[in-house]
């Protein structure tokens, strides 16, 4: 057998221990279980936290497996699978709201449109599946950024698309905090003038956000006098919850 790297073996042993039960573990417990000095462990844990394989609980200081690790391997949700599972709910959302329905996932810093249902008014529309939307200027993107398990930073400078696009990183962070608090995102003429969009998160069985679903339409219909009709917000959130329930099965 060839040479092995000791610190990688130790990192693997830590991950195995953290995966062995539902309990979070502190440095002292890990040190006892592995028979290693705390100082050695701290260095390895710091590295694992940085790559996202391990997370540290803010309150207790104890460690657990990170979201990034959960994304590895067979648990990955195929985008085409997501579309298949969501298609009936997206149709129902378009039917109830009388607006176009959209599903997006994060792809290399952009929103990839993986499903699009036409606005049911038989006007000329073009299928937008496979196109990209900017994350900071779209409702779908804000949802995906707000719950991004990888916590990737948005590429700056933030490009303006209209006069209302959020271009200040600090303001975007405040907006994402609002999205997390409310559980949904709005886009008020930030991508296209005259257009408004609403989106909510789709979560998989582990509670990780795997996509966003929403509607897009004219500001006169969705937000007359500049205020979103909450009826539309509830349609979007209902659809997101229904797909989330379906994925948990």
């Amino acid at each position: 057998m060839g040479e092995t790297i000791q610190s990688v073996e130790r990192a693997a042993a830590i991950l195995r221990l953290l995966a062995s039960g539902p309990r979070q573990l502190g440095v002292a417990e890990l040190a006892r279980a592995l028979g290693l000095p705390k100082g050695t462990l701290h260095g390895i844990l710091r590295t694992l936290v940085r790559v996202g394989f391990v997370e540290q609980d803010q309150a207790t200081g104890k460690y657990r497996l990170g979201a990034t690790l959960l994304h590895l391997g067979s648990s990955y949700l195929d985008v085409n699978e997501l579309r298949t599972r969501a298609i009936n709910w997206a149709d129902a959302l378009a039917g109830r709201s009388r607006e176009s329905a959209w599903i997006g996932t994060l792809h290399e810093g952009h929103v990839l449109v993986i499903h699009h249902v036409f606005r049911p008014d038989d006007s000329m529309q073009t299928l937008q599946v496979g196109t990209y939307l900017p994350t900071h200027a779209s409702a779908l993107g804000k949802v995906l950024l707000a719950w991004d398990p990888y916590g990737e930073a948005v590429a700056t400078p933030l490009q303006p698309h209209t006069k209302k696009t959020i271009v200040d990183p600090g303001q975007l962070e405040t907006e994402l905090e609002l999205v997390r608090t409310r559980g949904w995102a709005a886009e008020m003429e930030e991508l296209t003038e005259g257009e408004v969009a609403i989106a909510a998160p789709i979560k998989d069985s582990r509670g990780i956000v795997v996509g966003a679903i929403g509607i897009r339409g004219a500001v006169e219909r969705l937000a007359p006098e500049g205020h979103l009709h909450m009826e539309f917000v509830s349609y979007v959130r209902d659809a997101a919850r229904a797909i989330t329930r379906d994925l948990a099965r």
Binding site: D91, H116, F118, P120, D121, D122, Q125, L127
Partner: peptide, 9 residues
């Protein structure tokens, strides 16, 4: 009148 396109390729 009830029939609507959801998508067109």
């Amino acid at each position: 009148a009830n029939w609507h396109k959801a998508a067109e390729w």
